[in-house]
């Protein structure tokens, strides 16, 4: 059994907790949160021990691994404290607010030889995994064009202030939504190295952006566009997609559907020349416990297996999430202020 503690029982935290609670190899030894009411509900209705102070939880419950699901500005301090106590860490995304903070976490995890993972769950979605396989296999030929997009209904009217509306705490569509798309582009096509210009706009939010457009470059030959908007209420929930054009074909992919065009018969097995349409059902393995998408359970399971020494800990490491943080910095620095 892996003993797990969780810091921050908000929306993502509760979701992780439910998946952890149902995991046959996990014992939840502590939940810490700053809301008295949340702690009270857990005290009355769950078996999980609760703590108002996370450092006290680390001391008393002595977990092997800790999930951190708190506003981004707190990731750096908390992850450092957790790792200094020799605990493995799963952190929500994005990793940190600055390159330097992230770099320190990467170095500390390496130094202490701790398992480290960040919640970029798209890498556990079957359709995106298939895109990675096709691109890595060279079946698209020389890639030269891509578009990464995400749309959804987070801020669809003027809102009350919360941490997502404060730039200093990690709010804004760039950190919340665009980070997922950037991470996926980095993963599938290689890290973004230059940003040629960005427009960030606010419609409803007062102090953060509601949309981001950026021109991204991976290498002089491979470039593309990022278009993200969290104020689109024609979507029920976040929808992330990527389009990739190469010399031998084209891919249009989201979490549910993969459309692939091959110019010739030189394509992977089970595909044909011309258009191919596949669905996530073709690529999805069952999970032991399903809450809101196989990917959420699969990423937790992958982390627990890594802690047990049964999987390699090379997906969504702090290091890869730090690359995403760096692209976020590049984007911020490239904002066109005219």
């Amino acid at each position: 059994m892996v003993k797990v503690g969780l810091i921050g029982a908000g929306k993502m935290g509760i979701s992780h907790l439910s998946i952890l609670g149902a995991h046959p190899e996990v014992e939840v030894v502590g939940v810490s949160d700053t809301s008295k009411m949340v702690l009270d509900v857990f005290r009355k209705y769950s078996r999980f021990p609760v703590f108002a102070d996370y450092e006290e939880m680390l001391m008393q419950a002595n977990p092997d691994a800790v999930f951190i699901s708190v506003p981004t500005k707190l990731h750096s301090t908390m992850a450092q404290k957790v790792m200094q106590k020799g605990k493995h860490v799963f952190s929500e995304k994005p990793l940190c607010l600055t390159d330097e903070e992230g770099q320190r976490l990467v170095a500390l995890a390496e130094e202490k030889k701790l398992i480290n993972q960040v919640g970029y769950h798209n890498k556990f979605i079957g359709t995106f995994q298939e895109v990675k396989r096709i691109v890595d296999g060279g079946y698209l030929g020389e890639v030269f064009h891509f578009v990464g997009e995400a749309y959804g209904p987070v801020v669809v009217r003027p809102q009350k202030e919360n941490w997502r509306s404060k730039p200093g705490e990690g709010g804004g569509c760039l950190l919340d939504y665009a980070s997922h798309v950037i991470d996926l582009i980095n993963h599938i096509l290689g890290p973004v190295t230059k940003v040629h210009g960005t427009i960030m706009k606010s419609f409803y939010s007062k102090s953060v952006e509601d949309s981001v457009f950026s021109l991204l470059e991976i290498s002089p030959k491979v470039s593309g566009m990022l278009s993200v908007n969290w104020s689109d209420d024609t979507y029920r929930k976040m929808s992330t997609s990527i389009t990739i054009i190469g010399s031998k074909g084209k891919i249009i992919c989201d979490a549910n559907e993969l459309k692939l065009y091959f110019k010739t018969r030189d394509c992977p097995e089970t595909y044909t020349k011309g258009w191919n349409v596949k669905y996530v059902t073709n690529f999805t393995d069952n999970v032991n416990f399903y809450l809101r998408g196989e990917e959420y359970s699969a990423q937790v399971d992958y982390f627990i297996k890594a802690v047990q020494g049964q999987s390699p800990n090379n997906v969504n490491t702090f290091h890869s999430a730090w690359h995403t943080d760096r692209v976020i910095s590049l984007i911020k620095n490239s904002v066109n202020r005219n």
Binding site: I14, S15, L17, S18, I19, L20, G21, A22, F42, Y45, S46, R47, F48, F289, Y290, L291, R292
Partner: peptide, 12 residues
């Protein structure tokens, strides 16, 4: 299911 399964995982 989102609520049933959430509560199920939380042991509630």
């Amino acid at each position: 299911n989102i609520i049933t399964d959430l509560l199920l995982g939380l042991g509630m």
